[in-house]
């Protein structure tokens, strides 16, 4: 699976890495047990600092999307695809809040927001890439 990073984007690089790996998982391009490159290899491929990759991996590890095993490498967590726990649900709610707030400022109705979410879901489920 390919990952594409924009160095000049306003989204921090580590977050771009995180988002694309999660998206890969949602699309099914990545599956639990699949291995990811080591921090060093990933940073070399990006030509960027190892801290950036480390930050992304720790973030993903905290959310239980990947498992970092000393010496064996980095793999997609067995629980990468799971039923949302109460904590997961809470976190998502927190993270969605500013986006929904922005949508309300833009005078979008509940129906429109629902439609937007639906569009994104269809897009992710089309495994075109």
């Amino acid at each position: 699976m390919f990952i594409e990073i924009e160095a000049n984007s306003s989204v921090p690089i580590y977050l771009q890495l995180v988002q694309q790996i999660i998206e890969g998982l949602a699309k099914g391009s990545l599956k639990p047990g699949d291995s990811l490159p080591s921090v060093r290899a990933f940073a070399a491929d990006l030509g960027m600092n190892m801290h950036t990759v480390n930050k992304a991996y720790h973030y993903l590890e905290e959310k239980e999307f990947i498992r970092i095993v000393q010496k064996k490498g980095v793999v997609i967590h067995a629980k990468g695809i799971r039923e949302a726990s109460a904590a997961d649900r809470n976190r998502l709610k927190q993270e969605l809040r500013p986006i929904v707030a922005e949508a309300l400022c833009l005078q979008m109705s509940q129906e429109e927001i629902k439609l937007l979410v639906k569009e994104i879901i269809t897009d992710l489920k089309e495994k075109s890439l």
């Binding site: 699976m1 390919f2 990952i3 594409e4 990073i5 924009e6 000049n8 491929d45 990006l46």
Partner: peptide
């Protein structure tokens, strides 16, 4: 133009 870096996650494998 948008500058992008591409990484293949399975390259090393």
């Amino acid at each position: 133009q948008i500058e992008r870096k591409v990484v293949d996650l399975q390259f090393r494998e």
